[in-house]
């Protein structure tokens, strides 16, 4: 089982040290080998289950609720300026 770890960590936005990469790579491969097990089963015609309990039409009426204050909203922010959450400059 070959996993292109660099592609996956880029998607997941996780920077790994090379040690971590060396350790995780075979562990991941072992888990993926193990889950290959599922291929033994014939799942043709089986509906996938996304929810453990079958519910539908769970909706909320369009009614206002109290929001956080700006101070509360920003209280955990690593960095703020003028009421905004500050991040490194976004380059498109």
């Amino acid at each position: 089982m070959n996993v292109d770890l660099s592609r996956v960590v880029r998607l997941a936005r996780i920077e790994l040290t090379s040690e971590e990469e060396h350790r995780i790579s075979p562990q991941l491969a072992a888990v993926l080998r193990y889950v290959e097990k599922l291929k033994e089963l014939n799942v043709e015609g089986v509906e996938p289950t996304a929810h453990a309990v079958p519910l539908e039409n769970v909706l909320r009426e369009d009614e206002l609720r109290v929001s956080l204050t700006q101070e509360e909203a920003l209280s955990n922010a690593p960095k703020t300026v003028n009421g905004l959450f500050v991040v490194p400059k976004i380059v498109e």
């Binding site: 909320r60 206002l64 609720r65 109290v66 929001s67 956080l68 700006q70 009421g83 905004l84 959450f85």
Partner: peptide, 14 residues
Amino acid sequence: GCANEYGSEPNTNV
């Protein structure tokens, strides 16, 4: 239930 409203002070309808 936050307001869908334009023009409020930043990060107040959150």
